[in-house]
Design a protein around this nucleic acid. Structure first.
Lengths: 238, 238
DNA sequence: ACGCGCCTGTGATCGCAGTCACATTCCTGC
DNA sequence: GCAGGAATGTGACTGCGATCACAGGCGCGT
């Protein structure tokens, strides 16, 4: 496989989209640029670094491990995203580890310089506000799901979140590539066996369809209904 | 019971501590002031209001209900706290309901005016950043606990969070007043029966001690250890 | 082509904790 | 002091899903 080294630019980072090119280039120069191979740790939970990192190329996930070695997934990042704001803002240790899932090009800015940017550029400030708000809401949804949904319902919910609209067939959604079930399990806080059984149970309904590393969701609305019926308690009366 | 109407001032709201008195008074004038009785809804989840509310007096909790009626607690607020920033920032519906747990005096500022404040006062901006970061971290911890701790361990963890140091006896911590077990259950995402059994099981160890509406934690560190041993999976080898 | 490692799929077992049911105790107002 | 409602305490039952175990299958490198 030929290696095409991705260009070292921050132009694809949405957070900086309102800055003029001069300023962006200035920041690019202040960054520490690194490449990570799939599986490598970009950031270690609990460490005291304050850098904010921009994912220019590749994809990564935020996760943590329980004492017993169980892996809990928190978020996934793709090109254009950033992480590490929390520690820059509150000067606390990193709340999660970040692991590269594909080859990654990462630009890291010191926490100080990130804070300067927040102070000087209101547009950036508000984008970060927006992002933190999104994070809080996403966490709250997850807490609700963990507290009220049965394991298989959480898996379905995760599938819906991963699915993206298929341009070719309107109304159809795809997950491509379907990640290892172990990874889905870590995001739904269950085991890969349960993920497998949950998906298997869904085949007969025709709501999902698997072709190689693609998984098609043919009827989002109906799947949503099934999730509701799998409420942890009352066998499905609202 | 004699009613002492609390004064309508924002001087006890930490968020405004860096503002001069003139500005604070200006904001006080722009607020809508309301009183809520225990049990009343201050805010309804899902509604489209954008106001930010300051809890001047009393206490309240943020919670949501599952379809089956189960109550999930997210946070508790006491005098000096505020809530509603999320909707002001991202213009999305309210993420949770807020219910008064004691009689409350609440001052509400329009989302627009709150955003103006953010734009004009960096000190306020950064306090809000700080707060959002704290919320994200707290949520992440809760997700970890839900995913990896057994129910009783989550209860103990919640007890530790509620306990405050007892000035009289160093090393001893108190929860006062101990809220109804149902409420603890909703914060630990379990049932009041399980909360009861969890606490009961702890009495013989002497780690906690109950006197009326006080619950004393005599050895925080040891309780923390017990939580670790109750990892959902591996019976307690790190 | 072959083999090794990682995924996938599925059965069997079993303990935790949610649910239901009921007795008891604690408040608070009259 | 008494009555009624809420909160607490406890036993019995049961189903979900974590765990363990193992049998294919798929891909990838040499």
């Amino acid at each position: 496989m030929p290696k095409t080294p991705p260009t070292r630019t921050l132009s694809t980072i949405e957070l900086f989209s309102d800055l003029d090119e001069a300023e962006r280039k200035r920041i690019e120069g202040r960054c520490r640029w690194r490449i990570f191979r799939p599986g490598e740790r970009i950031l270690e939970s609990g460490t005291e670094t304050r850098e904010v990192s921009f994912l220019v190329h590749g994809s990564a996930s935020a996760l943590n491990y329980s004492l017993s070695g169980r892996e809990i997934g928190f978020a996934t990042f793709s090109a254009g995203d950033y992480f590490g704001e929390l520690s820059a803002i509150d000067a606390q240790p990193r709340s999660a580890s970040i692991v590269a899932t594909e080859e990654c090009l990462v630009a890291s800015l010191s926490g100080e310089e990130f804070l300067d940017l927040l102070r000087q550029r209101v547009e950036v400030t508000f984008k970060v506000f927006q992002r933190l708000a999104t994070m809080v809401r996403a966490s709250d949804v997850r807490i609700m799901e963990l507290s009220t949904l049965a394991a298989s319902a959480r898996v379905y919910s995760e599938l819906l979140r991963m699915a993206k609209p298929e341009p070719a067939v309107p109304g159809q959604w795809v997950i491509h590539p379907l990640p290892p079930l172990r990874e889905i399990a870590s995001r739904a806080s269950t085991t890969r066996e349960t993920v497998n059984r949950a998906i298997t149970q869904l085949y007969p309904t025709g709501l999902i369809l698997r072709k190689g590393r693609n998984l098609y969701v043919t009827d989002k609305a109906k799947l949503q209904l099934i999730i509701k019926e799998l409420q942890h308690t009352g066998k499905g009366r609202g």
